[in-house]
Design a protein around this nucleic acid. Structure first.
Length: 339
DNA sequence: AGCCAGGAGAATG
DNA sequence: CATTCTCATGGC
């Protein structure tokens, strides 16, 4: 099954799918002849899918291919539209945030950066894995969970697994979760899985609560502090006030908005909510991506795939200098690799 | 090799 | 209440 969806605004799949919101998307490696490039493979519900946004003059379109069988339910498209939040007026959001010169710079590089609306359970587990970890490792951990306890999904080539149900993860237990490489995070994953499996906790119900109540309910869970709670709020519960503060965001905010004075994260979070309101999550993503890309530019890590260019304006900027137009990283990379 | 990681939670001062 | 230590392991 394939589909084409019209886009009303920019969509940068690389920035949106591959830098820390979700952890199961992989770029499809193009063949030596350049075929298959630009696709992103992932799992949506019980479907193995791939996505692509080719460059077009008459406006961009999103291409979807379902690589698994049986055929998907006919509500897959609505689910995809919701997952990528395609009906969001991202240009409008960015226009509002561009009143801050610092954010304006980030917007110029990441105009198609979206905030996903993930399934709350998968998002919660993903960020339970995040404390004192790093994105490559979180990816590995999530994938290990899927292989150990997820439902197999039929495809033509390598087997794919759905994200495990709460019951499946609860049944694994802390010890087995540790064996999968989660480290001390296994305890929290096991505990929260058990709460959801027994019905004691209804994550989806938190979406209909006011922001602060939803935030408090999440932080009452084992392994969920301010950072993890705000990731869940922003990336799966559609709470625009969510503003996860990690070291990148902290660095950017203190330098650009606090004159370099250091303050604690509680102050930063409150400031963000006052300053950006329901657009806090978008501001946070722009800051996060911009700060990481800047760090990458300073220390390019020769040979790293990041340097060879999917995300990060380090490489893109050098191209943009010779091209007067500002384009999204995704489109830029496509033009470079597949003219 | 050795430092550090999209933190949380308990232990201190 | 603010700061410090511990947790488990792997990426670079």
């Amino acid at each position: 099954m394939t589909a084409r969806l019209p886009l009303t605004g920019p969509l940068d799949l690389a920035a949106t799918l591959d830098s820390g919101q979700a952890f199961r998307w992989r770029p499809q490696v193009p063949t030596s002849s350049g075929q298959g490039g630009g696709w992103w493979r992932g799992v949506l519900g019980s479907n193995a899918v791939r996505l692509r946004v080719p460059t077009r003059r008459d406006g961009e379109r999103l291409y979807l291919e379902v690589e698994s069988s049986p055929e998907p339910e006919d509500d897959l498209l609505p689910h995809l539209v919701r997952y990528l939040d395609l009906e969001r007026d991202i240009d409008g959001v960015h226009h509002a945030l561009a009143m801050h010169p610092y954010l304006q710079r980030a917007i110029a590089s990441f105009s198609g950066l979206r905030i996903l609306r993930q399934e709350p359970w998968e998002c919660t587990v993903s960020f339970l894995l995040s404390p004192q970890s790093n994105i490559p490792r979180i990816r590995r951990n999530v994938e290990a969970l899927a292989q150990a306890a997820g439902e197999p999904i039929e495809t033509r080539d390598s087997p794919v697994y759905g994200f495990p149900s709460p019951e499946a993860l609860a049944d694994l237990g802390e010890a087995r979760l540790r064996q999968l490489g989660l480290g001390f995070r296994a305890k929290a994953v096991a505990a929260v899985a058990s709460k959801v499996a027994t019905g004691e906790l209804d994550l989806a119900a938190l979406q209909s609560l006011p922001f602060s109540e939803s935030e408090a309910a999440l932080q009452a869970l084992p392994g969920v502090g301010p950072k993890v709670a705000h990731c869940i709020l922003a990336f799966s519960l559609d709470k625009g006030e969510g503003f996860p503060v990690d070291r990148w965001v902290r660095r950017g905010v203190l330098r650009e908005f606090f004159q370099g004075r250091k303050t604690n994260d509680k102050v930063i979070t409150a400031w963000a909510r006052e300053t950006f309101g329901p657009l806090s999550g978008y501001a946070q993503q722009l800051i996060f991506h911009w700060e990481r890309s800047q760090a990458l530019e300073e220390r390019p890590l020769p040979g790293s795939r990041a340097f060879q260019g999917r995300t990060g304006p380090a490489r893109a900027q050098s191209v943009e200098r010779s091209s007067s137009k500002t384009r999204s990283i995704t489109r830029l990379m496509m033009e470079m690799a597949w003219p």
